[in-house]
Design a protein around this nucleic acid. Sequence first.
RNA 1: AGGACUAUAGCUCAGUUGGUUAGAGCGCUACCUUGACAUGGUAGAGGUCCCCAGUUCGAAUCUGGGUAGUCCUACCA
Length: 922
Amino acid sequence: MEKTFQPAEIESRWYQEWENKGYFAPRGGDKAYSIMIPPPNVTGSLHMGHGFQNAIMDALIRYHRMLGDNTLWQVGTDHAGIATQMVVERQLEAQGTSRHELGREKFVEKVWEWKHQSGGTITRQMRRLGASLDWSRERFTMDEGLSRAVQEVFIRLHREGLIYRGKRLVNWDPSLHTAVSDLEVESSEEKGHLWHFRYPLAGGEGHLVVATTRPETMLGDTAVAVHPEDERYAHLIGRMVALPLTGREIPVIADDYVDREFGTGCVKITPAHDFNDYEMGKRHGLPMINILDDDAAIGGEAPAAYIGMDRFEARRKIVADLDALGLLEKIDDHTLKVPRGDRSGVVIEPYLTDQWYVDARALAGPAIEAVENGSIQFVPKNYENMYFSWMRDIQDWCISRQLWWGHRIPAWYDDHGNVYVGESEAAVREEHQLADEMSLRQDEDVLDTWFSSALWTFSTLGWPEETEELATFHPSSVLVTGFDIIFFWVARMIMMTLHFRKEVPFHTVYVTGLIRDEDGQKMSKSKGNVLDPIDLIDGVDLESLVSKRTAGMMQPKLAAKIEKATRKQFPEGIAAYGTDALRFTFYSLASTGRDIKFDIGRIEGYRNFCNKIWNAARYVMMNCEGEDCGQDESLAYELGLADRWIIGKLQETEAEVSRAITSYRFDLASQALYEFIWNEYCDWYLELSKPVLWDEQASAEAKRGTRRTLIRVLEAWLRLLHPLMPFITEEIWQTVAPLAGKSGPTIMLQPYPQSAPEAMDSAANADIEWLKGVIVGIRNIRGEMNIPPGKQLTALMRNGDNDDKRRLQENAPFLRKLARLEEISWLDSGEEAPAAATALVGQLEILVPMAGLIDKDAELARLSKEVARLEKDLARIAGKLNNSSFVGKAPADVVEKEREKMLAQEQALQQLREQEQRIRQM
RNA sequence: AGGACUAUAGCUCAGUUGGUUAGAGCGCUACCUUGACAUGGUAGAGGUCCCCAGUUCGAAUCUGGGUAGUCCUACCA
């Protein structure tokens, strides 16, 4: 074995082996366990969030596979309509062409080409993480089977009246030329203005003043609204106003939506370009005047003078024109929420168009109930509130998109505007008995990407066929995802699955936090703070990192800033930490219910942990290879104290790790493993094995027992650790397992260690704690007195009880070795003690004679520090016990515990004070 | 505006039903190449558990009120 752990070669070798041998496919077990991966964008690449979530899913999957469950981790990718189409359009633009020049068919071909070219990136990266996905079942949301499921769902929902077409105000993205759903709009505060305009009363006696943040929409005003109880304007209700620049007259109406305190208390109403105004327009039967075209330039029924003008140019022009007419009263600064497309970043326009909708309200009822009655549980639970509040106020879901990349809507129109929904034109003709000469054209639009994602848990298993997989693996066990797509995806999956399967899509939703950078900032390309999980695995030099982070930056200033920050944070680039270290870092940070600041320091620590594991195995192999490791049950072996202790600790750790994984506390699982492996197995057990293995006097039975324990405990914790660190555990297990009497082609399919409570050994624990106490006591004296670590010491024991005597008797060789003592002896009660430094373990006093070694003042300082600590503690306990209400009201066992503690502390204090006296008198 | 979450060591975070000497990792200090590992070992320093009030014999933990931060939803033209 190499002296240090070298992950790179090991990882690629093992992953290939696992995949080639088909270990990822479901097998065995009557109990099914399944996870459907949240399908990443097929042309995307892996980010830290994927890395984190996949690490968690893989741990769950490997854990259940080792438990012997019939385990499926379903893999697949998403066509990601808008995102993918945008990428390809940008490429076309760079080539000096456009999708419109190509035409629909050629364009879609191009996108498929791009999919074939770049579609392997993310799946390759997922392999690098060690994800044990069943690649033989890989699906794509636009492959044949899933497309069939999409069509089936659309047609059935339409038949049931749950999908309908309607002309409504939608969120229109003027750069992408498509409608988007409410969820795809992000509002943020931006600085703007509040313009106050005078609208003259028809008839000419005076005016009223309206305030607006969007002057250009006044071209489409069809009313001015005031509050019904607003005395200032009561006399105007029902009168007409001459709308400037348009030659139209519009009424003054009363509606209690109007806030009297805001602006002037008069609101211009533009039903075709504002959601609130749209509702008010419907209430009052106002006309809807569209004044925009698809680019959000002025169009429609706007006055000819403005037609064709860009919306922001029109705004300036209209303000100027009104000003020229003397109708501009004032302009105030005003911050407002501006809605922008989450993909395009441009300002979204409310726009009247024909779109397809899902009646979400009807589907929401059962979906709410499923969470209310616990059929689906969120972890952590507080996300259920977020889910409920959205679901109880759900709006109909606009599912049509004016794109070319996606599932085309299975609807056909005749020349009279009739709509026919069916699986194909032929099917539609047949069903509706339409004559062949009657021309039909298919709806141009495609479905929202999330429509197909909503079917993911069952469409991947072969639905609408009633396949065996569907019967076995659906509902899936758990969904692992981020809170940011609870509405986009989780809620819609629950609705669709309940409707079509009459069962939940998953029993548990484990909501992970977001991975942020070390300052708590969201990682984003434009901030230049993105970490690529693959770079953490393989390492990256500074120049590559800088050029990666600044590539494609439109603003040179920003690029320079990013470069500077990157050079400062990673002056040496990023070291190669390996997959296991990265994964373990994710687990250690994965406490539930909070976002994760990714601290690069952590991964280094866990890389070191890998190295520790590697070297522990090296030590074990050096001492066990070619030796009798006690696997021949006919030969007697003897388990010493340390052996019994570490076996018991292993049981405790096994129980803890299982408990943690079952409750999705990967931070606790990783911590339990780290602590056991490093602080107990390596720091203490391996050290305690040396005196036995290296002692020529030790019996063959004792050595056999020690080797047996060394190798068997190691083999067990490798399995215990495997779901979190798959590669290093597999590599080491291959060499270790045979010595532990285990065999098999892979650790992946070995049984997961089960805790055996009967092997826990509290007597051994107590003895080891005593032993540690004595050793640490002596080391403390050595450390604080500046006695060289190599210097052999003499220790005298005094005032011990029978347990102390037995323990010392049994463990003298360990004490000698681990505390570096050349001599240990008991001091009789009458015997005069030499000048010495002291440590206490219970009542037992350990004296390290000071002759020539110890600085008297240093020892006094050390003692008085200890005395002060005890005095403070004692005062606290005494205070409690002198308080009659504590003694009276606290439970008896708590009081008793305090009494015992006080007794022990008093005795220790007395011993230390006496020692202090003795030293002083020297 | 409504709601959720967070506040514990220099940094990143644990802390289960109220009773612990409040813990871990990283960082820091001192010493040490001892036959698995310097990606290591040993010892150590470091905390007003955000603030105030309350409940209680007892509060990091429970209740109320503040402060600060993060986020979600809905928005006033």
